[in-house]
Amino acid sequence: MMNNERLSDNFTLDEFTRSDTASRLGIINEPGEKELAALRVLVSRTIQPLRDKLGVPIHVNSGYRCPELNKAVGGVPTSQHQKGEAADLSIDGKAADILEALENSNIPFDQAILYRKQNFLHVSLKLDGVQRSNVIIKM
């Protein structure tokens, strides 16, 4: 299913729900209303501002994951991806540049996990509650 709903100037809902694994396994990866609300907040408050600051396209490797998809890709049971509060991002070049842009701004985030070897940044923003602004770097 293709959903071209615009979440911001540079991002569509389809980018945050598309999954090769879901397609291969026949999993319908559609967010509910609360997850969709969380995705809209994540994109408008964190990801689009990051895109604007970087000035280069950001690729969404993984966004929303329904529980079945999260399990299929080996995600942790408490993954914020299941709530629509997280996305794994990459750019042409080093994902560390995304983290640097995030750290050198006032862009809100809950968690930023840099996966150096896989070259992507997991970034999350809670829909409710206090943002931890927690940065983790994995080799």
Rank of each mutant, 00 (worst) to 15 (best):
V76A: 12
E100F: 14
E68M: 12
L25W: 12
S19P: 08
Q48A: 07
S62M: 09
V56H: 02
P49M: 08
D92K: 12
L42S: 06
A86V: 00
K83D: 05
E100I: 05
A101H: 01
Y64M: 03
I28G: 01
I27F: 08
E33Y: 05
F16S: 08
G93I: 11
N104A: 13
E85Q: 13
L102T: 01
E15A: 08
P77M: 04
S79K: 03
I91R: 09
G74H: 03
E15S: 07
L25R: 15
H81Q: 02
L36K: 15
R51I: 01
R51A: 05
G63H: 07
L102Q: 04
N29Q: 04
K34W: 02
R45N: 08
I98Y: 06
S19T: 07
R51T: 01
R51Y: 12
S90Q: 05
I91T: 10
P77G: 10
G84F: 00
L50S: 06
G32P: 03
G26I: 05
E33G: 03
I47T: 02
S90D: 04
G74L: 02
V43T: 09
G26S: 06
D92M: 03
T78V: 09
L99G: 03
T46K: 06
S44C: 00
K53F: 11
E103I: 14
R45D: 09
R18A: 10
N29M: 04
S105D: 14
K53L: 14
K94F: 13
I28K: 14
R40T: 05
N70G: 03
T21R: 14
G75P: 05
R40Q: 12
L69T: 09
K71W: 09
T78Y: 11
P49I: 06
T78M: 06
L89P: 05
V60G: 01
G55Q: 11
P49G: 02
H81I: 03
G93F: 13
R65F: 11
D20P: 11
N104L: 13
P77R: 13
V60D: 02
G74P: 01
K83Y: 12
V60L: 04
C66N: 13
A101L: 00
G55C: 09
G63P: 04
G84L: 00
K94V: 02
Y64D: 03
A87H: 04
L25V: 09
P57V: 11
L39P: 01
G32N: 15
A37Y: 06
I58V: 15
S44F: 00
N70V: 00
A22G: 11
D20V: 10
A38S: 11
S19W: 12
L50R: 12
Q48F: 09
I91C: 07
A96I: 04
A38R: 10
P49A: 07
G55H: 08
E15V: 02
L36T: 12
L39S: 06
T46I: 08
E68V: 13
L50E: 12
H81V: 07
I58T: 04
D97A: 11
K83S: 07
E103N: 14
S62Q: 09
P31L: 12
L36V: 04
K83A: 08
E100A: 15
A87D: 01
T17V: 15
E30H: 08
S23E: 14
S105N: 14
A101N: 02
S79W: 10
R45M: 11
K34V: 11
A38T: 03
R45F: 11
L50C: 07
E85I: 02
S44L: 04
